[in-house]
Design a protein around this nucleic acid. Structure first.
Length: 288
DNA sequence: CTCCAGGGATCAG
DNA sequence: CTGATCCATGGA
């Protein structure tokens, strides 16, 4: 990978294992819009970033060298060798070989923990277009505006006085009370999000599970997508279906058994395997 | 109309 | 302890 810095623009060339469509459409992130084929706008880290991917280039703009080095390099996990990971998880596994070939440009993002936690509480028993709509309305209502029709994701302080009925009016439904419980426990320091990345995945998960509305799946997503715990294997309806179909001969299997299977089979790379399978399953509607 | 969505809390047994 | 039911909402 070669990084070239221009005036408020950064270009990557000779980049393998990076496909912006696959990275954003694999369900780990909700704050993006697509304008053209290969062109996306991402709202994250209190920045608005346009990414345009052509056959031989990936162009980040507006983007200073400092922002790229200190923020986006880590956000897009550019220090990780995905080629090696794909080799490891698909060794002697034709099923995973097919999944990694299907969407070989997926990367796991390193997102902001607070935004990820709130977003995945909203995601429960919900569909992706509606999740994106709710998060957009939440941001517009309580986040700092960067133009006339969109805003950054609000921080914890901005949600301190938001009540159940306020969340209800955004269309969060029964999840409103969960959002209240979440911000309450963060504000009164019952849970310290900033401490979780230094804890073991097991201990960090116990902390997240104290929040009402956070169960195993939401906790695993927060750990995987924002706290660097790449061994998590979140089991949602899609992952359950595709894992059963491809590895359990189509047999209905409890979620804990599926998690245990993934942990044993892929170990510290289970999270990567999960994303390749999720994208593959959802794109091909496997098991539906 | 019914069914479902990147689930989890609560209840019934 | 496991399994069934309920939860808000909007699109298919």
């Amino acid at each position: 990978m070669k990084i070239t810095y221009y005036d408020n623009r950064v270009e990557l060339t000779d980049t393998n294992d990076f496909n912006i469509t696959e990275i954003l459409e694999c369900g780990q992130c909700f704050r993006f819009t697509r304008s053209d084929e290969g062109t996306y706008r991402i709202i994250a880290l209190d920045r608005v970033l346009d990414i345009r991917q052509t056959a031989d280039k990936i162009i980040f703009s507006p983007c200073t060298a400092a922002d790229f080095d200190s923020l986006w390099y880590n956000y897009f996990d550019l220090g990780t060798d995905y080629k090696k990971i794909k080799e490891i998880i698909s060794k002697d596994d034709p099923v995973m070989q097919k999944a990694v070939e299907y969407a070989g440009g997926i990367r796991l993002l390193n997102q902001e923990p607070f935004e990820t936690l709130i977003s995945f509480i909203i995601s429960q028993n919900n569909n992706i277009p509606r999740i994106k709509g709710i998060i957009s309305r939440l941001s517009k209502a309580y986040g700092r505006a960067f133009d006339e029709n969109d805003s950054f994701f609000p921080d914890l302080a901005a949600l301190a006085n938001v009540k159940n009925e306020d969340y209800m009016s955004l269309g969060t439904g029964f999840r409103a009370k969960y959002l209240c419980d979440c911000t309450k426990k963060l504000l009164n320091k019952e849970i310290d999000l900033s401490a979780l990345s230094d804890m073991s995945a097991e201990d960090a998960k116990k902390e997240l599970l104290k929040i009402k509305g956070v169960g195993p799946k939401v906790a695993d997503c927060v750990l995987l997508f924002s706290l660097g715990k790449r061994d998590m294997y979140p089991v949602d309806v899609w992952v359950k279906r595709v894992t059963e179909l491809l590895y359990f001969d189509g047999k209905d299997t409890p979620k804990e058994e599926i998690s245990a299977f993934a942990a044993k089979k892929w170990g510290k790379y289970a999270g990567y395997a999960q994303q390749y399978l999720f994208y593959y399953a959802r794109s091909e509607k496997l098991g539906v």
